[in-house]
Computed example of a mutant assay.
Amino acid sequence: MKLSSATLMLNAALTEAQRLGVSVCISIVDAAAWPMAFMRMDDAPLGVIDVSNKKARTAVLFQMDSADFAKIAHPDAGAYTLENTNGGLTSFGGGLVLRAADGVLVGAIGVSGASTEDDIAIARAAANILTA
């Protein structure tokens, strides 16, 4: 992923968060789970900085959206406590895998600070930049 793409995604996420009237943190990581870009909106709680990063890391490390990861990492599923690996992951929505237009995995985005549904919507608005 290029920094220019990550910056465009941050701006798209910011626009969507403002449209929804929420304050969030947005973390974008590359395909190796290393940080590419980050934004904390005014009034976003400090605790969601780490959560947004963990959502992005979860998505890229397991090549699935964090909401899908939740389906395998809950107490009744086969991989319960998996979120305790890899330096800490998270098992709820807001982390999306990012793929280029050709389908190649390029990274992930994590959004946290609003409802799970809004976090996912904000992340999707940003992810759409890659396929536009």
Rank of each mutant, 00 (worst) to 15 (best):
residue 115 S to L: 06
residue 36 M to N: 04
residue 107 G to H: 05
residue 11 N to R: 14
residue 32 A to R: 12
residue 87 G to K: 02
residue 122 I to Q: 04
residue 3 L to K: 13
residue 85 T to M: 10
residue 81 T to D: 12
residue 78 G to K: 09
residue 36 M to P: 03
residue 129 I to S: 01
residue 89 L to E: 02
residue 65 D to Q: 03
residue 20 L to M: 12
residue 81 T to G: 00
residue 57 R to C: 14
residue 1 M to F: 07
residue 117 E to S: 15
residue 24 V to M: 01
residue 45 P to E: 12
residue 48 V to E: 04
residue 98 L to W: 07
residue 69 F to N: 02
residue 79 A to M: 12
residue 26 I to D: 04
residue 37 A to K: 11
residue 111 V to Y: 02
residue 95 G to D: 05
residue 69 F to Q: 03
residue 131 T to I: 14
residue 19 R to D: 13
residue 6 A to S: 15
residue 109 I to Q: 10
residue 114 A to V: 00
residue 73 A to M: 03
residue 71 K to T: 15
residue 112 S to K: 01
residue 102 D to R: 10
residue 49 I to C: 04
residue 63 Q to R: 13
residue 108 A to L: 01
residue 1 M to H: 06
residue 43 D to T: 13
residue 127 A to E: 12
residue 57 R to L: 05
residue 11 N to L: 12
residue 15 T to G: 05
residue 122 I to Y: 08
residue 15 T to R: 03
residue 105 L to I: 14
residue 112 S to Q: 09
residue 126 A to N: 06
residue 53 N to T: 10
residue 110 G to Y: 07
residue 55 K to Y: 01
residue 72 I to P: 00
residue 84 N to E: 10
residue 36 M to V: 13
residue 39 M to S: 07
residue 14 L to E: 14
residue 58 T to P: 03
residue 100 A to P: 11
residue 65 D to A: 06
residue 20 L to Q: 14
residue 59 A to N: 03
residue 33 A to Q: 04
residue 100 A to R: 13
residue 26 I to A: 05
residue 112 S to R: 01
residue 115 S to V: 09
residue 19 R to G: 15
residue 13 A to I: 02
residue 7 T to M: 13
residue 78 G to R: 11
residue 111 V to E: 02
residue 9 M to V: 14
residue 11 N to Y: 04
residue 41 M to N: 11
residue 104 V to W: 10
residue 83 E to S: 11
residue 46 L to V: 13
residue 124 R to Q: 15
residue 5 S to Y: 13
residue 83 E to F: 01
residue 120 I to C: 14
residue 11 N to C: 08
